[in-house]
Design a protein around this nucleic acid. Structure first.
Length: 477
RNA sequence: GGCCUCAUGGUCAAGAGGUUAAGACGUUGCCCUCUCAAGGCAAAAUCAGGGGUUCAAUUCCCCUUGGGGCUACCA
């Protein structure tokens, strides 16, 4: 059996689009599931769209996502070069061959003339005007330096048909297709041409890409046929949507991998979530590692309809990854986000990390969650009032002074010890420990809701700061 | 407009003629609990509409409606 070779062929736009990332992931999973190769090819034939640093974005996003490619511009391989702009001569050579085979022809039409071809609906279809030019005339005009393009010669009638592994049989009438440009006047190929030549030359067995190519694939097949090449297997993927009517767009930052990383999502969670958009493994697994996905990946689980990107679920999944991390790993990843706040200078962030891990979904939630540790609170005493806990300012007034003395006598400010000592204090006061902890927590933080309980917060604040805070809370009462 | 294509809860989705129509996120409630999370339990919520085919359609066919894509010297 032929070796499975899939490819991811992004154009260097400066972003790693999440839709593109999913396409890359599926191509990778398919290849690896079948012990095949995954290839990266850069489609940079549009020179006007060149973006500085865009290649690095592609390389690093793929790598940090765990999608290692077997061949590519920066890792080499036997089918290079893997950057289309470096393959210009190859395309020209094959374009000329296609002209000889009758599958394409030179065209000298001016932009002005093409515009006269526009119909009442604003659509334009080339009229094969230059197809009737004799070989001699074409040669003469090229020799004289006239600018030209090479167009695909598509039959005027007939129907083309192919099998897509997701969508089934696709039939399109040739009459619907235009004699689109294969080689531009700058000598560069268009996507329409380059993808065919490269996929064949690089021996890509399965072409995995978005549905935007579903209806133009017949054009590509025509070329495979004209050259006498075997067509690849096609696997078209449904679109990822922002909402019911809009695609995920790079523009708005809702589709950009790096933006998600900067917001404190972790790579594994993004990849995992994106894998689930349009694919459901046989065992219905949701949280999966890449090796597990490779094992489970199957085309029958891929859906045909577009799916809407749900960042609420992504956040949840990211939270799952966070919770599953060891404390050390979490701390390492969370550190940059702690450092966006003053807390990292004032307290032991490893202690904060422990209590916060299960209370955030993305790392960028951290600074806001811990800000109360930086600023000593000022608050109204109504905060002490809580019906369920049976507390209010009166309870606070009664309990807090005694807690203060207790705190100043405690040497071991560990959570366990604080809990034990203060619990027994509540017993001697014959109040519920939860009442004591509630008012203490309020006194320490001035917040109705905090990450962690009173004793955990005491441990983080330390003896000195804790006492200061309780004192100042008493003054406010 | 033409062509291609899609359609199960709010979202991701399983199910491929006979099911009490899975599961997850979210929502709501309860339990646990030093607040909140986390964790546990439970509940509400779906087959777009209309025709066929069939003993039987969410499942097959057709139409309608709605969504997406293509229709570039962009990919």
């Amino acid at each position: 059996m032929k070796k499975v070779r899939t490819r991811f062929a992004p154009s260097p736009t400066g972003f790693m689009h999440l839709g593109g990332l999913r396409t890359a992931l599926y191509a990778y999973l398919y290849a690896k599931h079948h012990d095949g190769d995954f290839i990266l090819r850069i489609e940079d034939t549009d020179r006007e769209r060149f973006v500085e640093g865009a290649l690095e974005v592609i390389y690093s996003s793929l790598l940090s996502s765990g999608l290692r490619y077997d061949e590519g511009p920066d890792v080499g391989g036997n089918y290079g070069p893997y950057t289309q702009s470096e393959r210009k001569e190859i395309y020209m050579e094959y374009a000329k061959k296609l002209v000889e085979l009758g599958g394409a022809y030179y065209c000298f039409c001016s932009k002005e003339r093409l515009e006269t071809l526009t119909d009442e609906n604003g659509n334009r279809k080339y009229d094969k005007h230059c197809l009737k030019l004799s070989k001699e005339e074409v040669e003469k005009r090229i020799a004289s330096g006239e600018s030209f393009v090479i167009r695909q010669n598509i039959p005027l009638e007939g129907t083309s048909s192919y099998e897509d592994l997701i969508y089934g049989t696709i039939e399109v009438d040739y009459a619907e297709l235009e004699d689109n440009i294969l080689i531009k006047s700058d000598g560069m190929p268009t996507y329409n041409f380059a993808n065919v030549i490269d996929d064949h030359l690089m021996e890509i067995s399965h072409v995995i890409r978005g549905t935007e190519y579903l209806s133009s694939t017949p054009k590509y097949n025509l070329m495979y046929d004209a050259f006498g090449w075997e067509r690849p297997v096609y696997i078209h993927l449904p679109t990822i949507m922002k909402d019911a009517t809009r695609k995920l767009s790079k523009r708005y930052g809702d589709a950009n991998f790096d933006d998600f990383i900067n917001k404190g999502y972790i790579e594994e969670a993004i990849i995992n979530y994106v894998a689930l958009l349009g694919w459901c493994p046989k065992n219905n697994a949701e949280k999966m590692t890449i090796p597990e996905m490779i094992e489970l990946f199957d085309l029958s689980g891929i859906s045909k309809s577009p799916s809407i990107f749900d960042d609420v679920k992504l956040r949840w999944l990211n939270g799952e990854y966070l919770k599953a991390m060891s404390d050390d790993e979490f701390l390492t990843r969370a550190k940059p986000f702690f450092e966006k706040s003053e807390v990292s200078k004032l307290y032991d962030i490893s202690k904060i990390a422990k209590i916060i891990k299960s209370r955030i979904e993305i790392l960028s939630d951290i600074p806001e969650k811990v800000s109360f540790l930086v600023e000593r609170p000022s608050f109204d005493s109504v905060l002490y009032e809580n019906k369920k806990q049976k507390t209010d300012a009166t309870v606070a007034k009664q309990v807090l002074p005694l807690v203060l003395t207790a705190l100043s006598e405690i040497e071991d400010f560990s959570n366990d010890n604080l809990f034990k000592t203060l619990s027994s204090l509540s017993e001697t006061l014959s109040i519920k420990s939860r009442q004591l902890f509630y008012v203490l927590r309020i006194a320490l933080t001035g917040l109705e809701v905090t990450p962690g309980g009173a004793t955990e917060i005491l441990e983080i604040l330390g003896k000195e700061e804790s006492i200061k805070r309780v004192k100042s809370a008493l003054e406010l009462l």
